[in-house]
Amino acid sequence: MSSIIQLKNINKKIREELILRDINLSVTKGEFISIIGPSGSGKSSLLYIIGLLDIPSDGEVFIEGEKVDFTETHKIAHLRNIKFGFIFQFHYLIAEFSLLENVMVPMLKAGRTKEESKERAYLLLQKLGLKGKEKRKPFQISGGEQQRVAIARALANEPIVIIADEPTGNLDSKNTAIVMDIFCNLHLEGKTVIMVTHEIELTERTERIVKMLDGNIIEDIELDKKKC
């Protein structure tokens, strides 16, 4: 199967310190991957490179078979806008914007009309169980709901890859389960999901586990696909 993301011999150096060492990783379309490892092992750093938020010191990145030229900032921003959906430990919703408007932000950048964006934002929020709360501000909803809005925003431009850095890090077990269900559903819909987590039990619902230590990938295990 063709890989939609491929990293070849990636090194990342920060002030003479190698935080990623010779990473080779290939992500196939539709995969549900979890990345685990101790704190400081380089999980986030790896995600930033995958998501084109950071530039590797050495090595090459291919998106859908095409090599990424990191000097083309305009193109990279465009790829982030339409190919990737980012979710972080914190929701990073814009406090002044309503939930609806937060979800509209990436769509407007992608060139959709206001009406179209609004319509789609309503749909996404409904899909994530936030119907009726579209006009609220982020501080007027719970932490679990905030994270779901962030997921809705990540899905705004129908990305091919969802990149999530400890998306459940701030959530209780009930909300963690809800978010995991959402990811599973996205996976079943055919979306690629790459998720960093600290919680081993969550990896059981994914189909591939990438273990990291000191900037290296030390294990890359394929699991049974039916668990999700």
Binding site: G51, L53, I94, R153
Partner: peptide, 16 residues
């Protein structure tokens, strides 16, 4: 700052 960071992650460019 955080909002600017997320806007950039969402594909907004420096000129934006």
């Amino acid at each position: 700052k955080r909002d600017i960071a997320i806007l950039k992650a969402l594909g907004y460019e420096n000129v934006d």
